[in-house]
Nucleic acid binder design. Structure first.
Lengths: 186, 186
DNA sequence: CCAGTGATGTCACTTGATGACATCACCACC
DNA sequence: GGTGGTGATGTCATCAAGTGACATCACTGG
């Protein structure tokens, strides 16, 4: 029994993505997004800290799942094996919706401000993974390095997966990238 | 001689850093920075694209030097050895001014918008290094992975160097971090 | 001496973002 | 059934970032 139309946040997310795709990020005003969702600009900023954040609403959940997978890895697993488990979880969560991922990523890639925001989300992921590794008893700087290396693999593999509509699935692409990283640093 | 006071850009950089340090980034307006430099806000935006960019004026030169060092590495050098040469160049350029680096980094670390900007500069560095590696004949995804791995080492080592006033110098810290990365991914 | 040029100033404007306050529908409790 | 609380929203005012258009002003080259 909603007092207002339900799921204001979801409507704002949807309206924003549609407008960002059709006219571009900069050409879209917050007032337009809110109007399309049947709300006002002031309300938009109650749901999202700024105009970019609306595209990253799912990142907190992604981070939580990655960390869960990392800490749940077998105690005997090496740091990079634990990171690998986190990457598997990421692939499971993002590996669907190739089309939607591609669309969203295209918006992000076409705007520097959005790329900045994406990078800081990745950095947050990285520090969360490093925290998880330290809780597993991994010392510094190994924990940070393994976490950052995992994020590198994630980014490179995700980009590759996005750009190859008929390539292997995300999980496979990530495992391949991880193998290549081992080879190239070795 | 100069029609106006010389080095407007340098005066703006200096004024901005002073104000960002003393009152914080958000609490400083562009009008204040410009006034301290004897200029107007409009002129500030002719020198710097936005309020954050003034802190990253040297990044283009840093990038050029890293790429130069990378492409100048011996032809027989492996991808990671070439990246290592770039890191040596970075250490030579940034390894001085421990005090100033620390001050600037403290401003950046205390503000999310500035951290975003720093991350995108790092990403730019990474793609430039990957380009350089490809010019050296390194294929994808190895070029991207080696470049990103190099940036990871750079970031982790720089942070470590900043936080340890009496630790080893930057070049040494970077070499150590690179060794640890090899160990942890191996 | 004069036209051109480049750096700056002035003005007007849009938009992102925020604080203060009002409103309005529902809910719990007496 | 009131009655007051609560949470989500709207309204209004305001600030600061950023930009376009145009003026100015000092020097430079012919």
């Amino acid at each position: 029994m909603a007092r207002w139309e339900a799921d204001a946040s979801g409507r704002l997310r949807e309206a924003a993505l549609e407008l960002y795709v059709s006219r571009g990020f900069e050409q879209t005003t917050v007032a337009e997004i809110a109007a399309r969702a049947g709300l006002t600009a002031r309300t938009f900023f109650r749901h999202f800290a700024d105009k970019r954040e609306v595209l990253f609403a799912g990142s907190a959940e992604l981070q939580a799942r990655l960390v869960d997978a990392l800490v749940a890895a077998p105690e005997a697993a090496s740091p990079m094996q634990a990171v690998g488990a986190a990457l598997d979880a990421a692939a499971a969560l993002l590996g669907q919706n190739h089309q939607r991922s591609r669309q969203r990523q295209s918006v992000i890639n076409s705007n520097p401000e959005l790329r900045e925001r994406e990078l800081i989300k990745m950095a947050s992921l990285s520090t969360a993974l490093a925290d998880g590794l330290r809780r597993r008893g991994v010392a510094e700087p190994d924990a940070s390095l393994a976490a950052e290396a995992g994020i590198v693999v994630f980014r490179v593999a995700f980009e590759r997966w996005i750009s190859e509509p008929d390539g292997p699935d995300l999980a496979r692409t990530m495992r391949d990238a991880l193998d290549r990283l081992k080879a190239v640093t070795g």
